[in-house]
Amino acid sequence: MATTAISPAAITMKPNVFSICLKETKYEALKCLRLPMYSVSTIVFPIMFYVLFGLIMGRQNIGNISTTTYLIAAYGTFGVMGASLFGTAATLASERGFGWLEVKKATPMPPFAYFLAKVVMSMIFSATDVVLLLILGTAFGGVHLPALVAAKLLLTLVAGSLPFCAMGLAIGYFAGPTSAPALINVFYLPMSFCSGLWIPFMFLPKFIQKIAIVLPPFHLSQLALGLVGAGNGGSSRVHWEALVGFAMICLGIASAGHQRDQKAHG
């Protein structure tokens, strides 16, 4: 019996890839916004820390700038990291583990749209974090950043969120569906502390300062602090190179996880 009796050319019109990516991102953002676990840990925590330790308690200067200015860069890095790690790793691990990714793979959705949506959604949350910190600092913390510096800070932090999105994908491919948030925190919180995001770098014990050099959040926070005049003087090129290198390693791990999934399925 003929097997090709029904012509595969019956559909000539292709769906619009751009509009798929747009919808995928929109619903990814709505989905996460409605999950307190995500929206609280990525937006509320950095803002709350800033209000407590910056606006209420931070009356002195750190180095030659005000605490409120310093903390925009530090908590900005902290917020960006959280938004990126939770936005990619937690949802990917759960959707992989519980079979939802497979349901999507059975549709004509272009696979890159799925990942792009998570990354763009994380960047939107990252930008929200930084903008809120800037607004709060300017309105209530006596922060006076020129518009150009504020814009550079925002761009730097949002661009610097990409290595953490890559790290999130790597975790998402290896974490179990329910253990991912815990695993993220195992990396997120110690890394934040050792990179000087909570306690300014110069006040950290010497041995932690040495560890910090190999931690990506340290490099991103130094780029942000450099823009507001509180960096430790390192070359920004070196910081960017460290972040790009870290992103490459994470993408390699994520891609190994992807290959492993494909292999498991044949």
Partner: peptide, 19 residues
């Protein structure tokens, strides 16, 4: 071209619940 003409209902452990 195949996927455009196919629909599937698979067994899934969990569907994004907040949408």
């Amino acid at each position: 071209e195949t996927h455009l003409r196919v629909g599937a209902m698979l067994q899934v452990g969990r569907v994004p619940e907040s949408l």
